[in-house]
């Protein structure tokens, strides 16, 4: 149990990367990027967890129980916002590419470029 959560983050990371490598569609590829980014959320949140910890909200907190790491949570919040911005941008680039090429397949697009 002591490393299993970390390994899940690793699995997501490699899976996302595999998705980027194997993708035949920019939309699929963009989603794979968000999966890869999810691995960083999982990594950050797991490294901040305390066994028997409680959420970092002091209102109504039970005394004596430690709070889990609030720093990684704030970092993850930033990360989530970044992911929205990146996804929107990659998709709008893909849309533009589609308008000029009529395809979303990275390889087909490459061939057209000559």
């Amino acid at each position: 149990m002591s490393v299993f959560p970390y390994l899940v983050a690793g699995v997501l990371f490699i899976a996302g990367l595999y998705g980027v490598v194997s993708s035949r569609n920019y939309i699929h590829l963009a989603v794979c990027l968000t999966v890869m980014q999810s691995s960083t959320y999982v990594a950050l949140i797991t490294v901040g967890y305390l066994t028997n910890g409680q959420a970092p909200i002091t209102k109504g907190a039970k005394p004596g129980k430690p709070l889990v790491d609030p720093v990684v949570q704030s970092l993850t919040l930033t990360d989530v916002v970044v992911s929205v911005a990146v996804l929107a941008l990659v998709l709008s680039l893909a849309l533009r590419a589609y308008r000029t090429h009529g395809t979303l397949d990275p390889d087909e697009m490459r061939e057209m470029r000559g």
């Binding site: 970390y6 983050a9 797991t46 305390l50 990684v72």
Partner: peptide
């Protein structure tokens, strides 16, 4: 390589960061 690094992390669920403790 990634797994080797992740296995080297402090055990899941143990308190460690002074930085986080300060805020808590």
């Amino acid at each position: 390589v990634l797994a080797w690094g992740l296995v080297g992390l402090p055990s899941f669920g143990l308190p460690h960061s002074d930085y986080a403790r300060y805020f808590a």
